[in-house]
């Protein structure tokens, strides 16, 4: 069963999603051939206090055994420590540096990652959510610079760092220049995407991510299908990497392994 590490719930002003609730997301993923999924709250991106969106997400996810909520923190706000400490079932922590307006080399970020390092908690970096070329003209938010991620990841090699929504070239650079960065495949696209990507990077560094509900889910599934004949890589990208990174953490171990 495929594990999706890039899904979210909530509202976004520039798109009207057909999937708006946790049960609808779980049903939709199941119908598309996906089992467990990491979910973040979209309302943590633009709304000033991410704790509000996190709380809604964790409440909504409670009754959906296949959805694994991941809290978002803004390390420039004082409540990030409480959010991380409260994470009973913490699989990972997500940051959204570009929308929260900070660079990865700030002391705030270092302090957060030091805390994550102590527990070897994976750090998820949301590089973007939209195609910069199509953004609302008064809300141009560039992607998180690859060089900044490389520097942070190399400063904390013990922290698994998962970058969501990297483009093909960014993904290759991130993987080549670090030991501990993985990427999801949602934004990665070229002719025969995965066979081409795997000529340049190992399958152990790539995870299935659909970026649902921003994206249709089917394209990611069909990209993964492109390496169906390579049984080992299919399994590695579709499930095993996610189980290795997130499966043995927190109180919901069973979730990522369950079929």
């Amino acid at each position: 069963m495929i594990v999706d590490i890039n899904t979210s719930l909530g509202r976004w002003p520039f798109q009207r999603f057909s999937i708006r609730t946790a049960p609808a997301l779980a049903r939709h993923l199941r119908a598309t051939g996906i089992g467990p999924a990491l979910v973040t709250s979209l309302d943590t991106i633009l709304f000033p206090d991410p704790a509000v969106g996190n709380a809604e997400l964790f409440r909504a996810g409670k009754r959906q055994p296949t959805l694994v909520p991941v809290p978002t923190v803004n390390p420039t706000l004082s409540n990030w420590r409480a959010i991380v400490a409260d994470g009973v079932d913490l699989k990972a922590v997500r940051i959204v540096p570009n929308y929260h307006e900070y660079r990865l080399d700030t002391p705030f970020v270092r302090q957060l990652v030091e805390v994550l390092a102590a527990e070897v908690t994976p750090l998820i970096i949301q590089m973007r959510v939209e195609d910069e070329r199509n953004q609302y003209p008064l809300m141009k938010v560039p992607g998180v610079p690859v060089a900044d991620i490389v520097e942070l990841a190399n400063a904390f090699p013990q922290v698994p760092t998962i970058c969501l929504c990297a483009y093909f070239g960014e993904a290759v650079e991130l993987i080549r220049k670090t030991e501990n960065v993985c990427v999801d495949l949602s934004f990665i696209e070229t002719f025969q995407t995965l066979p081409t990507l795997l000529e340049q990077v190992p399958a152990t560094r790539v995870l299935f991510g659909s970026h649902t509900p921003f994206f249709y889910t089917r394209p990611a599934v069909m990209k993964l299908e492109g390496i169906r004949p390579l049984a080992e890589e299919y399994e590695t990208i579709g499930q095993a990497n996610a189980v290795r990174l997130f499966g043995n953490r927190g109180g919901r171990n069973a979730r990522l392994n369950e079929q």
Partner: peptide
């Protein structure tokens, strides 16, 4: 682009 991803947006 990738045929599979592009087809996926219509099929999805």
């Amino acid at each position: 682009r990738d045929f599979s991803c592009q087809l996926g947006r219509v099929l999805g």
